[in-house]
Structures are given as structure tokens and as C-alpha cells.
Amino acid sequence: MLYLLFAPLAEDLQLANLFRYITFRTGGALMTAMLIAFVFGKPMIGWLRRKQGKGQPIREEGIQRHVIEKAGTPTMGGFLILLGVMVGTLLWADLTNQYVWIVIFVTAGFGLIGFVDDYMKVTKQSTAGFGGKFKLLFEFTIAAIAVVWATSVARANGMDAGLETSIAFPFFKDFLINIGPLFYVFGCIVIVGSGNAVNMTDGLDGLAIVPVMIAAATFGVIAYLVGRVDFAEYLQVHHTPGTSELLVFCGALLGAGLGFLWWNAPPAMIFMGDTGSLSLGGALGAIAIAVKHEIVLAIVGGLFVLEMVSVMVQVASFKLTGKRVFRMAPIHHHFEKKGWAEPTIVIRFWIIAVILALIGLATLKLR
């Protein structure tokens, strides 16, 4: 909004010229989103606590300490994150950029699905929530719209022919596999998988939000670099016209995450719930599709992949052999069962997320 207001005045007003710089607007989006989370955090927590009563139900088969210590903590804190992200993005981004709207669409859509899931859990005081099949159906519908939208925008923006339906591989300069119409299926899996992987990671205070912020910052840098033809040519990566503007969205996500972490740091005053985890994971998936770095998302978000794989392995093993590979899944609960303290697990997982993000960024040059 501010870009559309001030950018046309750049020639006559020196201060307005700042709004033409994505980096300046990214800083503005970050600060705006963070301040919103700081200001509205406490009243929102109080309101949700009054409305939800017993708060988010905790799995009884889980860590007994969680059942006791975390009982009564309100959920749906993802609202706070989404509020910051949306206001920060709508205020500072170039709203004529279609990629911005694609990511907003996925974020809001997955957030709505998460809200319904959280609402059902709270009202029924059950961990079951939204039916899994219906949940996936709606997620894949939103993802399908986003992937079709993104590929059409890529063509309209002048992306190299065939790149919009191709998979690019890190560490290889010209290694592309054009899978044609199958890319739409692949893209849906990336977005839905990312959303649910973050959702599974959200099990300890601060565990999910910091890796999400790290991944958002990483993909903000990637979006900025591959969206500029000069940097793309220098790094010998595929140029994706128009995606640089996603840096503003990533900045807003980073700021909202910092503000939310203030209230979610151990001991958490609020949980993000599916409202937050699904929407944030979906957003990361949509950004990866836009910038053609889907495989890099699996590296940068390797922690989320590990969490999801641990659940899949646990379920498959129990169904096939009747035995469990882990003491409890997702894997962060396995370490809790082994006696690791919650802060130890959280901080070590943060360190892993930083290492994976650095590896992901290294793929830009090592080609």
C-alpha cells in the first residue's frame, strides 16, 4: 500500500524514493509485524484464555509433565502471527506483484483450515480435531490453485520457457528436469507437505517458530537474489522475474515470529496451534515453488522433514511389525522420553536449523 502511494512521488520527494527499495520496505514490514505481535500479544492471550477455558488439549499418552504443566495454555496463537504478517505485507509490499498475493492466499487458506482444526479441538476438548481426509482435501485444493496461479504468473513474467514446470537441483548449474503437467502434483505435495511438516514440529515451546523464522529469512534472501537478473547471472542460478518482492513477505514473517516468540518462549503463554503452523509451513512451500527452489526447501527445512519422516516411519513400523522405532513420535518427543530437558531439545534443534539454512544458502554458489 505504501509503495503504491509513495513510489510515484520518488522523483519529486527524496524521502519517497526509499519506498522504491525492497530492502527498506522489508525492514518496515519486519518492524510493523513485530510491533503488532508485541502490542496485541497480551490482550489476545487474555481473550483466548477466557474464551477457551481449559485451553488446548494435551495428548494423554504423551509426556506426563506436559499434561500437567501445559494444561490450560490457550492455542490459536497463530492469529497473532498472521495478523502481523498480513498487516506488514499489505502495508509495505508492492501489491501489484502477483507472487505476493499467491503466498498470501496460501497462508490465509491454510490458516483458516488450521483455525477450524484448533476450534474443534478446543470446543470438543479432544486432540482429534478436523478429519484428516477432509483436511488434506482442502489443503490440496488450495495448493493446486496456488501452483496453477504461480506457473501462469511465471510465464507472464517472462520466465525461461519450461522452467515453470521444471525441478531445479541444487549444486548443479544447468540440471533441470521438466516434468510437465506432473509439476502441478509435485507443487501441491511441496506446499501441503511443508504445511504439515511444520505442524508436526510444533510440539515444544519455541520449537517450531524459530526454525520457521530461519527458513523464512533464508528464502527471503533466495527470493531477492533469484528475482534480480544481475545476481542470478552472477550466481549462475535460474532467474525468476518478480519474486524479489517476496523478501517483504519474508521480512513480515520474521518480525511476526519474533513478536510471537516473546510470548511463546518457555514457559509458553500461548501455543500457535494449527492456525499458525499450517499457515507458516504452507507459506514456505508456496515461496519455494515461486522461486524454483523446491529441493532447497527440503534442505533448509530439513528439521521439518525429519519430524515428518519420524512420524511416517513410526506409523509404518507399528502397522507392519507391531513395534515402534521411536519411543514416541514426532522425534522431539523421543528425546524427551530419553530424558532430555525441553530447553535442550529446543536449542539443539535451533542449531540444526541454522546449519541446514547455511547449507541451503551455500547451494546458491556451489554450482
Rank of each mutant, 00 (worst) to 15 (best):
L163D: 01
I214W: 05
P181C: 03
V210Q: 01
T75F: 09
F115H: 10
S194G: 03
V67P: 10
F169H: 04
Q14P: 11
I81A: 05
I299P: 00
G302I: 03
L30A: 14
S279V: 12
T89R: 00
A256P: 12
R348F: 08
L320R: 14
A268R: 03
G242A: 02
T321L: 10
A128H: 15
T107N: 14
A29N: 09
R367K: 15
L235A: 02
V147D: 03
F183Y: 13
G131D: 15
D230K: 07
E11P: 07
V315Q: 01
A357M: 05
M86P: 13
V221C: 08
G301E: 04
A168C: 13
F19D: 02
T240V: 15
T75Y: 08
T344Q: 14
I214E: 07
G255H: 04
T75W: 07
V39Q: 01
S194W: 00
T96M: 13
V190T: 04
Q56P: 12
Y119C: 14
F186T: 05
A362M: 12
G195H: 02
S244D: 13
A283Q: 04
K51V: 10
L258N: 09
F38D: 08
I36F: 06
L15T: 13
P8L: 04
D94V: 01
G302V: 04
T96L: 13
K338G: 14
V185A: 10
I177H: 05
